[in-house]
């Protein structure tokens, strides 16, 4: 089976209008996919549904053929959009925790990446700068040999050099045949690494296309097209 993620008629309502409105989406293995849309378009809702943190109002979402649950969590590596790790922990303890939680966690890889960042095992999360905290979370997320990586705003509040580091970390570390879904509204910064783009608007999919084919067809960058589609 070549599909890693399938959504069929997937909808989510938090009580009011639908945050996600009957979307159909299939992602294949071995791709880097940009989940692009303005604030409030449903990006985080989709990612949380894929993680089983939310349950669908209607429709279904399948990861490697299964509904989100214990089995899929062993295959999915998730980077939430906010700090979520206890900040009193140091990097060594965090690596132990990840190793205990996830069979596919490669501690040597994480250690190597921390060293290259100039971070040591006894550094506590709370002593790190915002940029280094974000990088730490990303290093832990990308050190798993997962089948699906769900990265919610991985390049949010960091400087351009850190962005570059984060992108290279993603490209250099996702497992072969793994798929990476990156949600962001900072398109210009990531567009060269994307195979595919998915545009979300008001809970609906406006576009799902190969990034190079899109550039070929439209003669413009994904970023420029995004600005057109979402012009206010």
């Amino acid at each position: 089976m070549n599909e890693i993620l399938i959504c069929r008629g997937l909808a989510k309502s938090y009580g009011g209008p639908r945050a996600l409105d009957a979307i159909d989406l299939t992602l294949e293995r071995g791709r880097i996919v940009g989940l692009l849309g303005p604030n409030g378009s449903g990006k985080t809702t989709l990612i949380k549904l894929a993680n089983g943190l939310l349950t669908p109002t209607a429709g279904e979402i399948l990861i490697d053929g299964d509904a989100p649950g214990a089995v899929t969590k062993s295959k999915v590596s998730y980077l939430p959009d906010a700090d979520y790790l206890p900040d009193y922990m140091n990097l060594r303890d965090l690596m132990y925790m990840f190793r205990d939680f996830y069979e596919d966690f490669d501690a040597d890889k994480a250690k190597e990446m921390f060293t290259s960042l100039g971070l040591g095992p006894t550094d506590r999360l709370k002593s790190l700068s915002k940029g280094n905290r974000e990088k730490t979370q990303l290093v832990l997320t990308m050190s798993r040999r997962a089948q699906l990586y769900l990265l919610d705003e991985p390049i949010g509040g960091v400087d351009p050099a850190a962005r570059d580091y984060i992108l290279r970390t993603i490209i250099g570390n996702y497992s072969e045949n793994g798929t990476v879904l990156i949600s962001t509204h900072l398109i210009a910064d990531i567009e060269s690494v994307l195979d595919e783009v998915v545009f979300l608007k008001n809970g609906k999919i406006m576009l799902h296309s190969n990034a190079d084919e899109l550039r070929e067809r439209e003669g413009k960058s994904v970023d420029a097209l995004f600005r057109e589609v979402f012009a206010c």
Binding site: G30, R31, L167, R168, I171, V193, D195, D212
Partner: peptide
């Protein structure tokens, strides 16, 4: 391919 992709900061498939 992966090393080159990393150096150029592009997608390995591309």
């Amino acid at each position: 391919v992966r090393e080159l992709a990393n150096e150029a900061a592009v997608n390995p498939n591309t």
